[in-house]
């Protein structure tokens, strides 16, 4: 059951702040998405789960170093930086 609390919780997981009217607006939309998944109920229970859609297995890489990107490149798209660091919001 999707209600305001569920929408609020999902918004928090996505770190998005929603206004009261937005919370209400999303209830029917979330419900519709969830209903779509009920199609899976038609699958018989003894079917093995499929974890990957292709047959690949054991694709590995050797432990051989490659050059990292220059720091200017790394920081190029950062909106805020300081002394070679990315700068972000306080997290607690």
């Amino acid at each position: 059951m999707i209600d305001e609390n569920v929408v609020r919780h999902v918004a928090w997981l996505a770190r998005i702040q929603l206004e009261e009217d937005e919370l209400k607006k999303f209830i029917p939309q979330f419900t519709k998405i969830l209903e779509y998944f009920s199609i899976l109920d038609e699958v018989q229970e003894d079917v093995e789960p499929l974890y990957h859609v292709n047959e690949l297995k054991n694709v590995f890489r050797d432990d051989e170093p490659e050059d990292p990107l220059p720091r200017d490149e790394i920081l190029r798209n950062a909106p805020k930086k300081e002394n070679g660091y990315f700068r972000g919001p306080r997290i607690v």
Binding site: I74, Y85, F86, R87, G88, P89, R90, I91, V92
Partner: peptide
């Protein structure tokens, strides 16, 4: 940690 104004990130 609970008083900082912002966070610096090193990847």
């Amino acid at each position: 940690i609970d008083k900082a104004k912002y966070t610096l990130i090193d990847y």
